[in-house]
Nucleic acid binder design. Structure first.
Lengths: 343, 343
DNA sequence: CATAATTCCGTTACCGGTCACGGGATCGGT
DNA sequence: ACCGATCCCGTGACCGGTAACGGAATTATG
């Protein structure tokens, strides 16, 4: 049994050629209105749906896109994924998703290509520029998030990390802090580099000298943030403001502060980055630099669709701003119960 | 330009028929070892990969499975998705994912089928049994999580919700609580029904009479838990133990307790269900009934693969236990920093 | 009424692989 | 040296659709 109902079955039932059925479905080519409606109602009755693989074989349009994220369990990604899928589904596209944190990125990409995807949205970070370029040569439209690669097939979507980090520092400075630390993470990460850059820029703008001792590297996790903060606060108890590479580190940092008896926000202020769901759920609620993740996914798919349909050949980088969200961890603000739909 | 490299290109380059190339790749049929290795090295050099769509057209094996979740941004799902994808990738399978909380479920399923998926793992909850059965008639192997449908093509994976809820109550009872409330959610949900059932069973086992006033329905969200708890604690200030349908409600409940000046856990104990990442991150850390979500996804794919490859025709329900995780919210336990890998 | 222009639909080839079959070359046995 | 078995490999058809072309039926035109 190959497939439940084929176009031939419909053609036979309608007493026409399958080409005519095809014309009826796609409303393409010459076909009389009454034949068309007759076939369409018949299709409806039979519950026939064209096989997208067969379609893709001659049209080269599979109605699938690839979506590659490092790790879907990282709270930063689900919202982006959701946005891409919502937009995809609304346009008749399905999404093939892969995680790459423990798999060779290019291998994953190549595997996705064999399925005939029409486009690719990815957070490819580990593969080097040259390999990515070579891949893009052989493949079609590609959209990379938080990375810029010069290539006619590659469009980038960049969050303004420098500005975001800068806003975090500005916020702390406005609250009166002058001894401000930062938890950073692996240097290979472009986002991290930019956020450190923004941190320095913010301090400089406020006329605060940069103290290398206050910039500490750690794992971008809750445990990493906890450990680094324990160390940092012991060595530099004078620190009253802390900015972290991401929210999970900030949550860990807050836990460390509590364990060291440093009240938040009266004795120390903490601000994270990304504004993941958890940020608004912890106590005290975490201030953060929000990246509009849903919008990010939406924009990514929107441009991707245009590229696929060749409505545009614009591969100019899409830029997004990051926004300060001040909550309890950087000052006494009213408690807000977040809106969230979760079962 | 249809595709970068086809089997014909390889055949031409090797000076053989494409059938021979096919034999070399699949190591199937009669082929001399030296021809085979010659072709394989050539394939390696050229970077050729067979088009899975074309393969699927005659073999009916697309190496894709469908994965349908209500909402990937719900913290309950990413880990399951990840587990399925890890297992899938390890077996050469790709995953087509869709969200269904705002789309007609059967429509989504049917759409996935047109892509030729080999199997389907789903959390289909809203569609009624008959529609699901009819769908299963036309489709192949299906695995539904947290729902049982009698059908030769359908395998179920069930978490023992009754037992899990029972464990939560037992835990509260052991701590000395006798006035225990529960936040439930929509009645249509099977999981909810079972958890309420377990709640009642636990009380009965402890000899505590069931007080209908203490069972309150709310949205399964942080906001829902917050609002319901505010109401409940005002009407029943004597309540000292609270069990919630899920962790998000519990986090909301804890916030409500704090706002009402009820200290956790000295004045009231709270326990949730699912043990999502957030549970270990909030303060105080939330006790919960853990569902091993990674194992859930792993088991689901494992069985699915067997069914696809017809290694088994076993559609017996897969059962999973839920486990008590006691943290700060139900008693003074040492603080644990959770292990978590997040960027 | 004959011819040209439309309208509508069927036929054939093809997308990129795999299956079933058949046939040439090599080898062994007598 | 002849014949059958074995080992390889090629040929044609096919999976389920679509593109391109061509031809019959209908309508318009002289």
């Amino acid at each position: 049994m190959k497939q439940k109902i084929t176009i031939d079955d419909v053609a036979r039932a309608a007493g026409v050629s399958k080409q005519t059925v095809s014309r009826a479905i796609n409303n393409k080519g010459e076909i009389s209105p009454k034949t068309r409606t007759r076939i369409l109602t018949l299709i409806e009755e039979m519950g026939y749906r064209p096989n997208r693989m067969a379609q893709a074989m001659n049209t080269s349009v599979s109605h699938m896109i690839g979506l590659v994220v490092p790790d879907i369990t990282n709270p930063f990604f689900p919202e982006i994924v959701r946005a891409v899928q919502d937009a995809a589904m609304a346009n008749g596209y399905s999404t093939l998703i892969c995680n790459t944190d423990e798999a060779p990125e290019l291998e994953v990409l190549n595997e996705l290509v064999t399925h005939g995807i029409d486009g690719l949205i990815t957070f490819t970070h580990r593969a080097n520029d040259q390999d990515v370029s070579e891949f893009a040569d052989r493949f079609g439209p590609m959209l990379i998030i938080n990375r810029e690669v010069e290539h006619p097939n590659i469009t980038s979507l960049m969050v303004d990390n420098v500005d975001g980090a800068c806003k975090a520092v500005e916020h702390l400075v406005e609250l009166g802090h002058t001894t401000i630390g930062m938890l950073t993470t692996e240097l290979e990460s472009i986002s991290n580099t930019r956020r450190v850059q923004g941190f320095r820029k913010g301090l400089k703008a406020a006329g605060i000298p940069i103290d290398a001792d206050l910039i500490v590297q750690a794992d971008p996790t809750l445990a990493g943030g906890y450990a680094a903060t324990m160390d940092l606060l012991r060595q530099r108890p004078d620190m009253t403001g802390l900015f972290t590479y991401n929210d999970l580190m900030a949550v860990g940092a807050m836990r460390a502060c509590r364990d060291l008896g440093r009240d938040i926000p009266t004795e120390i202020s903490v601000i994270g980055f990304d504004d993941i769901q958890i940020a608004s759920m912890v106590t005290p609620a975490l201030s953060s630099i929000r990246v509009d993740k849903y919008e990010m996914g939406r924009l990514a798919f929107e441009r991707m669709l245009q590229l696929i349909q060749k409505q545009t050949s614009d591969t100019a980088t899409i830029k997004m701003e990051a926004e300060l969200i001040a909550r309890e961890s950087t000052g006494p603000v009213p408690i807000q119960v977040a809106q969230s739909t979760v079962s």
